[in-house]
């Protein structure tokens, strides 16, 4: 295949494995290195809530054995690695017989759907706005309106989510206050469900789109200014290509390349932000599951959700990296 050299693919795969290994090792190791015993803390909290728990020492020992916390750290780590590779994430602590993977497989599609939708729209919208801001031929009226779209650039997703929720769900009642789909709707591939799901996704998606598109717009604006000074833009003008062709095929096409790299770098932050958006909107995705885990002290759920999200993010970045040589023909010849 043109553009993909063996060396490039191997390097990217190495980065993929390294990222996942690093992330999962951090979530394994740091909780065990810092002082404090989560199981003991949990039992203490149970005591606080229930007043008194019988045989608390035995309960702690039993839990520790259940989670293998009595083994030496190195053995625990090897077990953890094995379980990670086989995607065996254990059982939920609070809803005992359900497996963590089962819970996650219900939530993950919602998150991926919301994130993919919001990120793609925001990326396209933001880059178009940024390119138009830097484009010489943009009508003056449009140009003076464009900076308005940057207003919420630096506002975190979830804060914008709260504002949107208050204005459009509580105040104007245009959109539902939360959830993934309407109450009486049965899940499945029917129009009613898809419509309801999209309707419920509008506000959470808007929160992500509005606050992240400014980031793309600013980056794109800077790149377009640089690109506008390139010799090939002058020649494209001399060739009297249509303005649309020069804008998309010459200007945007070249300026978008660093933006694709920026997308790969920003994805981790976007995923983190989206988790909070789901929490604000009670959206039935990974973020909400994670919040449930935090509230219930369900450590296997927390660990499992975070591990899967790290895996998902790294996979998305890998896909972007592997697609990159197809949008930039030069990449196979020079190393990044």
């Amino acid at each position: 295949m043109r553009g993909l050299t063996k060396e490039y693919v191997i390097r990217r795969l190495f980065m993929y494995v390294l990222t996942i290994w690093l992330g999962s090792t951090l979530i394994f190791l740091i909780p065990r290195l810092v002082p404090g015993d989560p199981i003991a803390a949990m039992v203490t909290r149970m005591q606080q809530q229930a007043g008194y728990v019988e045989n608390s020492a035995e309960i702690i020992a039993a839990w520790r054995a259940r989670f293998g916390l009595d083994a030496p750290l190195s053995i625990q780590y090897l077990r953890f690695l094995r379980n990670s590779v086989t995607l065996d994430l254990g059982y939920s602590l609070t809803q005992f017989p359900t497996k963590v993977t089962e819970q996650i497989s219900k939530s993950l599609p919602w998150t991926i759907g919301l994130l993919a939708l919001a990120t793609v729209i925001s990326f396209i919208l933001g880059n178009t706005i940024g390119a138009l801001m830097a484009w010489r031929r943009t009508p003056r009226a449009v140009k003076s309106l464009l900076p308005l779209s940057l207003t919420f650039t630096s506002v975190p997703f979830f804060m914008l989510g709260i504002l949107l929720l208050y204005v459009f769900a509580f105040g104007l009642k245009w959109f539902p206050v939360g959830g993934g789909y309407g109450r009486g709707v049965t899940m499945g591939l029917n129009l009613e469900f898809i419509g309801s799901a999209l309707y419920h996704a509008v506000l959470p998606a808007l929160a992500i789109i509005i606050s992240s598109m400014g980031f793309w717009a600013l980056g794109m604006r800077g790149m377009m200014i640089t690109t506008a000074g390139e010799d090939y833009m002058v020649l494209a003008d001399a060739k009297a290509l249509t303005p649309a062709r020069i804008f998309w095929g010459y200007g945007v096409r070249n300026s978008i390349l660093p933006q694709v790299t920026a997308l790969a770098l920003a994805l981790g932050g976007i995923v983190g932000g989206a988790v909070l958006v789901e929490y604000i909107f009670s959206y039935p995705g990974m973020g909400y599951l994670l919040y449930q885990g935090i509230v219930n002290n369900d450590y296997t759920i927390i660990q499992g959700v975070v591990f899967i999200l790290i895996l998902t993010t790294a996979t998305a970045v890998l896909i972007l990296d592997l697609l990159y040589p197809f949008v930039d023909p030069r990449i196979s010849y020079q190393r990044r």
């Binding site: 990222t19 994805l267 981790g268």
Partner: peptide, 9 residues
Amino acid sequence: VIPSLLVLI
């Protein structure tokens, strides 16, 4: 690439 907020959570 690692979603740092999640690890912090």
